[in-house]
């Protein structure tokens, strides 16, 4: 189940969120939303990679986009 890794990642993400949240002023609403979204995406990617390390990523996306050009060099 990899429960310890999950707890570790959650603590790390929470610490980053806490650390950056304290630097913001109360009126910086937009910054707060973006901060929460970014850390949320990171947490999601981390959990995804924890359970499915072989999942196709950005490399495969770019490779499939530029593959026709890449054949010229073979």
């Amino acid at each position: 189940m990899k429960i310890f890794e999950l707890i570790g990642i959650s603590i790390l993400v929470f610490l980053i969120l806490l650390l950056e949240w304290r630097k913001l002023y109360p009126n910086q609403k937009k910054e707060k939303i973006i901060l929460v979204t970014l850390t949320g995406i990171s947490l999601l990617v981390a959990i995804l990679l924890l359970y499915f390390p072989e999942i196709p990523g950005p490399t495969q996306m770019i490779s499939s986009l530029f593959f026709p050009l890449g054949r010229m060099l073979k």
Binding site: E20, L35, L38, V45, L49
Partner: peptide
């Protein structure tokens, strides 16, 4: 404020 969250994301 977005430096550290991006640090985590680029490591991932």
């Amino acid at each position: 404020p977005i430096v550290l969250p991006f640090g985590l994301l680029i490591s991932l």
